[in-house]
Design a protein around this nucleic acid. Structure first.
Length: 414
RNA sequence: GCGGGCGUAGCUCAGUUGGUUAGAGCAUUCGGUUGUGGUCCGAAGGGUCGUGGGUUCAAGUCCCAUCGCUCGCCCCA
């Protein structure tokens, strides 16, 4: 007998939670379409290289969080930890370079081998958009505006804050990195252990440290802004101006950086206080170097990903199901008539339910429990007269309706 | 991967300084009601007390390990 517990960091999504997931995903899909982002899907696993090469060999995701295994053919396979790399791979595999610009929406499960926490699982779900082929900052503005629009639509915007920063182009980023490291070297012995390790690998991340001592040191660090070259400055100004035009409110956060190597220029994060340590619900940025890094032609890109599970946690109570029409046979003699009727109603576009067994009292009880708004009672006396008793489950009022007129009478319950 | 807290019925929880047959509410099922749900009344089912080991005459209770959940760190959606 295998262990009946699901694998650590995974869980079953039962109907209540599934409704929330669907609401997040369907709202996003519909909204994405309105902005011109077409849904696509990539496989949930790829050759390990697709992620190892693009996310940065030293990133935590690659070094300790990937689900990687050898398949029977000996290939190194990785369960996708995120989907941007997959989308870019698909873009190149399918020769879509000729059709730029391209806008994609995706949804699906992702996998990271991490210690589970609230809002953080080993199998989790993301939705995301990618906009390829547009170097103009208007592209960043569009994807951020779409993100804001989605959070508004889901009714969670009042609990999130948009934080915005720029990393500059690669030249600015490299220059800043140098300045920052030079500054931090002086405090090396005072930095936290984690941050000392990051100094060589990923010094920008130190800006983001939650350690008290680190924060004091970082407070005196040179700002990114001072290292930006003119074009990077202009780019960021345009993004900010565009957001203002779109009435998207943001907060500049010069310490916001990104964990993945392929980001440049715009970095943003919609964060919430409501999820404990897992603050980010929707985050992304620009990744102009990624396509080239994967072997394609230089192609700019920008986009974001959002955590479906996290957004689902923020959603208010799921809206109750509209409720079916319960067809209730009084006795065994009316079973066939009831079966025929329930199927006829379903074909006509109604949600209709036929309890499978029990006397009338049982069936009424069940009708109540599934939230039926109306019960159609079929008994011997009804059938003899070619009518049905229609009972409103809320008011308790009931009247007799000719069988032939049922669809019309029930129209408002469709 | 590191540190803290918590595991008793489907859910929320009680369970005395270790003591005999582990309880309640809600939920479920059945009955009161052979043509009417919600309310009410009655009854029933449901537990290897997370798991394994140890201490003890005796462990839900104490100790150790382990698994899971949870909070924080790391990282990130």
């Amino acid at each position: 007998m295998p262990d009946l517990q699901p694998v650590r960091g995974t869980h079953d999504i039962l109907p209540d939670e599934m409704r929330r997931h669907r609401r997040v995903e369907e709202t996003a899909r519909a909204l994405g379409l309105r902005y011109g982002y077409a849904e696509m899907a990539t496989p949930i696993f790829e050759f390990a290289d697709v992620f190892a090469r693009t996310l940065g060999e030293t990133s935590d995701i690659v070094t300790k969080e990937m689900y990687t295994f050898r398949d029977k053919g000996g290939d190194g396979i990785t369960l996708r930890p995120e989907n941007t790399a997959g989308v870019v791979r698909a873009f190149l595999s399918n020769g879509l370079q000729q059709q730029l610009p391209l806008k994609f929406f995706y949804r699906g499960p992702m996998f990271r081998y991490e210690r589970p926490q609230k809002g953080r699982m080993r199998q989790f779900h993301q939705i995301g958009v990618e906009l390829l082929g547009v170097a103009d900052p208007l592209a960043d503005v569009e994807v951020i505006a779409l993100g804001q629009h989605l959070l508004d639509e889901l009714g969670v915007a009042d609990r999130t804050t948009l934080e915005l920063n720029t990393l500059g182009d690669s030249e600015s980023r490299a220059a800043y990195r140098e300045k920052l490291v030079a500054y931090l070297r002086d405090f090396e012995t005072k930095l936290s252990e984690d941050s000392r390790a990051r100094l060589g690998r990923n010094p920008l991340r130190i800006l983001d440290s939650k350690d008290e001592g680190d924060r004091r040191i970082v407070a005196g660090a040179p700002p990114i802004a001072a290292s930006l070259n003119d074009s990077s400055k202009r780019f960021f100004d345009s993004v900010c101006r565009g957001l203002e035009v779109c009435k998207v409110r943001y907060r500049l956060n010069p310490r916001l950086v990104r964990g993945l190597d392929y980001y440049n220029h715009t970095a943003f994060e919609f964060t919430t206080e409501a999820l404990g340590a897992q603050g980010a619900v929707l985050a992304g940025g620009r990744y102009d170097g990624l396509v080239e890094q994967m072997g394609g032609p230089p192609t700019p890109g920008t986009g974001w990903a959002a955590g479906v599970d996290r957004l689902a946690l923020l959603l208010s109570e799921p809206e109750a199901w509209a409720g079916a029409i319960a067809v209730v046979p009084v006795g065994a003699g009316e079973t066939d008539a009831a079966l025929g009727l329930v199927q006829r109603l379903r074909r006509a576009g109604f949600a209709a339910d036929l309890g499978f067994s029990g006397n009338m009292s049982k069936r009424m009880k069940r009708a109540d429990r599934i939230g039926a708004r109306v019960a159609v009672v079929l008994g011997e006396s009804e059938l003899a007269r070619g009518i049905a008793t229609v009972r409103d489950m809320k008011t308790g009022e009931q009247d007799e309706v000719p069988l032939s007129a049922l669809e019309d009478r029930l129209a408002r319950y469709r």
